[in-house]
């Protein structure tokens, strides 16, 4: 086989494996969410299906598939059916640009070079932000197409929330971009070579925390989960969705969570790098997986501990606190880099 053919073969393998692995991770993320929800409250979560209840998600999927598909009669049916996919698919695109191992260098597999990334995209960061923006469409269109007053309001509120926090996210990742000198995620990870004190989380601590907090708002998780809260009167954008369509939104939330965790670990925690130089014998994908799991654990810990913000407080935090801080972070980073070099 010649090199281009080998590359094509590897690309096809990666492109098929990646979504499968992500979906499996999502299934277990849902299971762990429920397990941790129990553990943080002093109770055990699901225990019935499978050893320690680990097959619970699969049982849930079967249940959701077997439900009646209810579409409101006067809704915009095409948009109604399309909205879950608009929320769901963009996240996978971002996974295509995240490196989960070393890229470039000599041949490492049967004499051919296997790059641990699907696409070494030169503007990977922008792709991340853009896909986040497209995800907003899914939410807003779901609310609008339901032909329900309260769904529309809920969808608009969720959409406004997600847009406001994207700005803060954009400015914080710009700080990393300045430090690495490139928007390519592969270069960003390469720029964090060394042990864990060389990673970007130390110089960019403010940006990192802002990105983390803003990502909670992007994901519509507590404390920013007004859109999905059942105790609020204005029903969320998901009201009219039942069965597997609702399941798709639910899956979309977890895929987004995995993707955002991957991005945060790539930008700030060194991506596929080991904390110590000598530990790099353990392959890169394992380290990335460990970091993603750690961040997901933190997301879940936060969700099951604190209460949610009211809507206007949520918006004011996004605009009045996070955005100025992230701009300040960018300015300080720029000054320091131009002075120190």
């Amino acid at each position: 086989m010649s090199d281009p053919v080998a590359e094509l073969v590897f690309l096809i393998i990666k492109a098929i494996l990646m979504p499968v692995i992500i979906i499996l991770m999502v299934a277990f993320a849902i299971y762990f969410e429920r397990k941790f929800a129990g553990f943080f409250a002093g109770r055990v979560g699901p225990t019935y299906l499978g050893p320690w209840g680990s097959l619970q998600s699969f049982g849930d999927v079967f249940k959701l598939i077997s439900k009646e598909d209810v579409i409101p009669s006067r809704s915009d049916k095409l948009v109604f059916k399309l909205a879950p996919y608009i929320a769901f698919v963009p996240a996978f695109l971002v996974m295509a640009v995240i490196p989960f191992g070393s890229v470039g260098g000599e041949a490492n597999l049967f004499g051919y070079r296997f790059d641990y990334v699907i696409s070494s995209f030169d503007t990977g960061l922008v792709l991340f932000l853009a896909m986040g923006a497209i995800g907003v469409y899914g939410v807003v269109l779901a609310g609008w197409s339901s032909n329900n007053n309260y769904s529309l309001l809920g969808g608009l509120r969720a959409g406004a929330q997600m847009i406001s926090y994207e700005l803060a996210m954009g400015f914080s990742v710009a700080g990393v971009m300045l430090m690495a000198g490139s928007m390519n995620l592969v270069d960003i990870v390469d720029g964090q070579a060394g042990a864990f004190w060389d990673w970007y989380w130390i110089p960019q601590i403010v940006g990192g925390v802002i990105l983390f907090v803003a990502s909670i708002a992007e994901l519509n998780r507590t404390p920013f989960d007004l859109a999905e809260a059942e105790q609020e009167l204005v029903a969320g954008h998901l009201t009219e969705y039942s069965g597997m369509r609702w399941g798709m939104f639910y899956l979309a939330e977890y895929v987004n969570m995995i993707v955002v965790s991957a991005i945060v670990s790539t930008l700030y925690l060194g991506g596929w790098r080991a904390p110590f130089e000598s530990w790099n014998v353990i392959p890169g994908p394992i380290w990335l997986f460990i970091k993603i799991c750690f961040l997901i654990f933190i997301y879940m810990w936060i969700r099951w501990t604190i209460i949610r913000y009211r809507y206007n407080q949520l918006m004011s935090i996004g605009w009045k606190v996070l955005l100025p801080l992230s701009i300040a972070n960018l300015v300080v980073t720029a000054i320091v880099i131009s002075v120190v070099g």
């Binding site: 929800a37 409250a41 002093g42 507590t222 989960d225 105790q231 099951w304 501990t305 604190i306 209460i307």
Partner: peptide, 14 residues
Amino acid sequence: MDLGTQTFFTICFR
């Protein structure tokens, strides 16, 4: 719980 978290409800009932 009305304010947002279910964990608190469970631990109070516990």
